[in-house]
Design a protein around this nucleic acid. Structure first.
Lengths: 339, 339
DNA sequence: TTGTATGCGTTATCAT
DNA sequence: ATGATAACGCATACAA
């Protein structure tokens, strides 16, 4: 086992001082060509690489980014991570991923763990429990300590920091508008309880589009599920009691499940009923029929988040100026709507 | 901005030495009750937390695990990460995720970056390019440096280390057997080139089951795609030239895509053709019909990987004894086969 | 009971 | 041109 070599080891072997070695490896002008060559050759031979931890301690910079997300078995969040990774890696940063699993406590614990020197900044999306509790002290503490924070997708106005979101209201609006333009009159919305910021915004867009088109806003056509799991019973019950000619769902799973339900009832999609979902994932692409969806551009979101964070991390000035970037969603039209 | 407080700060404020503070906060018997209480109260008031980096440097233990995977927008890998996180977090470890994006070079760069002190050990799954190149020097270097390594799913015999795999051959066998038991005679296999260890093993199981049942092994019924992307043209061409009554695919996407193709041709699934895929993800659950699949138990795999790694990391003894854990896949029977 | 000194691996400042 | 020293934050063996 050839263990890692340190500056000290090189110094001892070559009978020079540690600082000489350090300078030589940085190609300092102070050191003579001869000794530089000797030291560099030796270092190369023994594959010397500076120890990241020591450098972190010295520089008070870890070159690590903490990413805290509610769920990783989830298409949207993984695309965001991919975007973060891409940008961060290019800038020499590593990404420490922590999962809150939608739990407030885990979110707090994870952040505290990372905040003690492990990372230079946070990129995160709030857990549903945190949004429900509306308690953001753990975020505030972090920012008060001067640790940069970027919130994405599931954000809150309660915390002053950089944010990256998509215009979910616009997404809801665009989708609903599309259904209206198809001539649909009885447009249902399947969503989650309002505590989830994104669901709320999407519902807002839905309402706006309906009102704008002078379609009545029928609250009984809105189904609010308490979690993001597919609640089969509620959905069945809903469709047994509602006549609809179009459905907007706040995620892929609700969409595909509902669609199948109506298909089993003998309805044709999109002839009898049109469907639009949120998230442009595998399900949308491979469902039958393929789904028309509002795409969220997660990878872009990740890249922008990372960019904003690293800028803050590396900027010297202390001026507290935060911005919120709003990305526009895109309607990807496929076969669950009429073209 | 209230910046982080250090032992030194506390020592200065309370006019004691740093070591006294350090000991007091560890509740050492050496320190008098009075000073302990005073120091602990002060520390609590100012929310003192030891700096992880300093501790890492001192202990030569980072409490970080490096996870290198080929792709994160991928159901199986995310379930594995979830399992790793779960176990690692419970043990006080953080997870640094790096993506090779199926590239050999990125895999090498990521590992080198992490190997310089950032992590205590690696958990990884090989990129397809690495498996194709059959070059594992970067892994060997890491293990020679004494850094523990656990390979999962996509592994190689070329490297001596702990491994966790599922019995892919058995999975292929079970699936094929199920199709044979249904009375299928013309069973196709849609897979990737052999360089992917898992695909190779699955194909082996397929062959074994056919031969065992005295069914002829017709190589023209095997379609090898060069990547994991859906190659629409090749698949269409294949089904235009092959008559089949059952199809086994090495992933979900191939399965759903092929199934749709045959459905468009007017065939009924599973009446005319049965389908079995690998990976029990969203697609399988929500496809139409719902897929019968070989489940890989990714989360379990992640937990076991983390457990094996942490055991090695924390064990003192140097004895090089490696083990390979083989998990059994499970056949999840749904509606794309006949029950 | 408290404090001093040393070291983890590196870099920067200040001698020599 | 080279080296000694201090510092990053913490822990610990050893002194007092």
């Amino acid at each position: 086992m050839k263990t890692k070599i340190t500056l000290k080891d090189i110094a001892r072997e070559l009978e020079v001082s540690i600082s000489t070695v350090s300078k030589a490896l940085k190609n300092s002008e102070e050191i003579s060509r001869d000794t530089k060559e000797k030291i560099q050759a030796f270092a190369k031979l023994y594959n010397y690489k500076p120890n990241n931890i020591a450098i972190s301690l010295k520089n008070k910079r870890t070159k690590n980014i903490g990413v805290v997300i509610p769920d990783i078995v989830h298409h949207f969040f993984t695309t965001v991570i991919r975007g973060i990774e891409k940008y961060a890696n290019a800038k020499g940063y590593n990404v420490i991923v922590c999962l809150s699993e939608e739990s407030f406590d885990k979110e707090v614990i994870n952040m505290e763990m990372l905040a003690n020197g492990s990372i230079d900044g946070f990129i995160m999306s709030l857990s549903s429990e945190t949004q429900a509790k509306n308690d953001y002290n753990h975020l505030k503490e972090v920012t008060e300590q001067g640790i940069p924070l970027v919130l994405f997708d599931r954000v809150t106005n309660e915390v002053d920091c950089d944010k990256v979101i998509i215009d979910d209201e616009l997404g809801g609006y665009m989708a609903t508008k599309k259904l209206i333009d198809e001539g649909r009159k009885k447009i249902a919305l399947i969503t989650t309880d309002d505590y989830l910021s994104v669901s709320k915004a999407r519902a807002e867009g839905y309402r706006k589009a309906l009102l704008e088109s002078n379609l009545s806003l029928d609250e009984s056509k809105i189904l609010k599920l308490s979690t993001m799991e597919v609640d089969e019973k509620s959905i069945r019950h809903f469709f047994n009691n509602q006549e609809v000619d179009a459905v907007l769902c706040v995620n892929e799973v609700f969409t595909v499940f509902s669609m199948r339900l109506l298909q089993e009832k003998g309805l044709n999609i999109p002839k009898d009923v049109s469907f639009i979902g949120f998230t442009n994932g595998l399900l949308s692409e491979f469902a039958n029929p393929r789904l028309t969806v509002v795409a969220q551009h997660g990878e872009k979101m990740g890249e922008i988040s990372a960019q904003m964070l690293i800028e803050k991390v590396e900027s010297e000035n202390e001026e507290e100026t935060f911005q919120t970037k709003i990305l526009e969603p895109t309607l990807v039209v496929r076969d669950s709507t009429i073209n």
